[in-house]
Each structure stands twice: as structure tokens, then as C-alpha cells.
Simulated scan of single mutants.
Amino acid sequence: MLVLAVDTSTPTVTTGVAELTPGRAVDVRAERRVDTPRGHAEILTTLILECLAEAGVARSDLDAVVVGAGPGPFTGLRVGMATAAAFADALAIPLHGVCSLDAIRSDAHAGRVLVVTDARRREVYWALYGPDGRVAGPAVDTPADLIDRLRGEQDVDAILGSPEHTRLFGGHAVDGYAAPTTAGLVATARRALESGAAPEPVVPLYLRRPDAVELKDRKR
């Protein structure tokens, strides 16, 4: 099974082509990860086409699309989800959405893990994981409020996410997990992909209202 993966929930645009074979690890055939906080829309399609060419895969060879559904800032997240949906629709293949924080967690070792990413407005998106999966979140809070929420919880083994935020939560920050990878996105969707069942509708995890609103809505 050949899968196109897309995520724009963080300042890093991630896209890649991976092969999924039963009983084997996800084989990433090509990947692009570009840090561009304001340039998601300008480069995403180009990066996807580069990955397809590098992997030697035609668009018609793809079997499914996996997209990170956030949480993430409204505009950036919408770019990735709209592009992924357009590819899936044009090719008449399934579109699977996954929580982007789950995909970051998927790349790490098992154990008790906190994932935090930048939500702007001096807030973070976060989720907490145990050995068997997510136990809290996804949600959005200030770092101080999140520390209060987690007070009394068991200690975490690792804190993953954007480096400027992971270091706010103690001494277990692990570098190298600021954004989802192709392998993490596809691995998170693996059960759904292999089941062959029709995917659930993909719903973006904005977790709060967009920054930009029409003037009439702002007055109301």
C-alpha cells in the first residue's frame, strides 16, 4: 500500500510517500520537511510532487492519503487538510485524518510522554500519553495552566514537541520531535489503513476560534 502523508499543523511542512506492508515497519520512500512558518500554501504542492518523483510513484499509484488534523493554527492547518483532501478526491482514494500530536508521539519510545506544540497567544497544544496510548488531550492551555493540570500526575519519561516549549516543563525534554514525520503519520493511521474500512470524516482540531473573523462577527 502506497500512502501520501501531509501535515501542516506546525511551522514545519511535512509531506512524504511511504509504503505500508503488513507485519513490517513503515518504509518511507521519500520525504520533505521544511520549516516555513508563513509559507505552507506556497510550497506544499511542490514538495508533494518532489516526493512522488523521488519515490518513483505516479499519483495514480497511491492507495490512500493520511493528513495531520491538528491541533494547529487555523490558516496553516487548513492548507494541509485542503490539499490532502483535493488529492484524495481527485484520485478517488481514502483520506484518513490523524491527531498530529499522536503522530509526534508515534516516533518516540513507549512510556509516559507529554507532547506540546506552539498554539501562539502564549499557549500550547498538548496531549499526554501512557504506554497504551493517549490518556488526556488534545487541548490548548497556557504553560502555567498545563503545569497546574499535570500536578499530581505521574512523572513523564519524555517531553516532545517544539523545543522552545518542551523546556518549560522540566528536565525530560527530548530534541528532534518538533513536528510529525511521514513515518509517524502513517504509523498512527496504520490500523485504519489496513482495516480497509471507509474512513471517518476528517475534522480539523482547531480547539478554538480562528484569529481572523469577519467584521460583522467581531461586532457581534
Rank of each mutant, 00 (worst) to 15 (best):
L2C: 09
V6D: 01
D7E: 04
T8C: 04
T10S: 00
P11L: 09
P11I: 09
P11M: 10
V13W: 00
A18D: 06
L20N: 06
G23V: 14
R24W: 10
A25V: 10
A25N: 11
V26Q: 02
V28G: 04
V28C: 07
V28N: 05
A30D: 09
R33D: 00
V34D: 06
V34A: 07
V34Q: 06
D35K: 11
P37T: 06
P37C: 07
A41C: 09
E42H: 09
T45G: 02
T46R: 14
L52V: 00
A53D: 14
E54C: 15
E54W: 12
G56F: 11
V57E: 03
V57L: 06
A58C: 07
S60Y: 04
S60P: 02
L62N: 08
V65C: 06
V66F: 05
G70T: 02
P71Q: 05
G72N: 12
P73W: 06
F74R: 07
T75P: 11
G76H: 02
G76Y: 01
M81W: 05
A82P: 01
T83P: 08
A85L: 04
A85K: 11
A88H: 02
D89E: 14
A90E: 13
L95Q: 03
H96M: 14
V98Q: 01
S100C: 00
D102F: 09
A103Q: 04
I104K: 00
R105K: 15
D107N: 11
D107I: 07
G111D: 08
G111E: 08
R112W: 06
L114M: 07
T117Q: 04
D118C: 03
D118M: 02
A119M: 12
A119L: 14
R120N: 10
E123C: 11
V124M: 12
V124Y: 09
Y125N: 04
Y125T: 08
W126R: 09
W126D: 10
A127R: 01
L128E: 10
D132L: 03
G133K: 07
R134M: 12
V135G: 00
G137Y: 01
G137S: 05
G137A: 04
A139R: 04
A139L: 07
V140H: 07
A144D: 15
D145S: 14
L146K: 03
I147C: 13
D148P: 00
L150E: 03
R151F: 13
G152W: 05
D155Q: 13
D155H: 10
D155T: 13
I159T: 13
S162F: 11
P163H: 10
T166Q: 07
T166C: 13
R167N: 15
L168C: 11
L168K: 13
G171Y: 09
H172M: 13
V174M: 02
D175I: 03
D175F: 01
G176N: 06
G176A: 05
Y177D: 01
A178I: 00
A178N: 00
A178L: 01
T182S: 08
T182M: 08
A183F: 08
L185G: 01
V186N: 07
T188S: 11
T188Y: 06
T188F: 06
A189P: 05
L193T: 01
E194K: 12
G196C: 10
A197M: 15
A198G: 08
A198K: 12
V203T: 15
P204S: 05
Y206D: 02
L207G: 03
R208Y: 10
P210W: 13
A212Q: 15
V213S: 13
V213Y: 15
E214A: 12
L215E: 14
L215I: 14
R218K: 12
R220W: 12
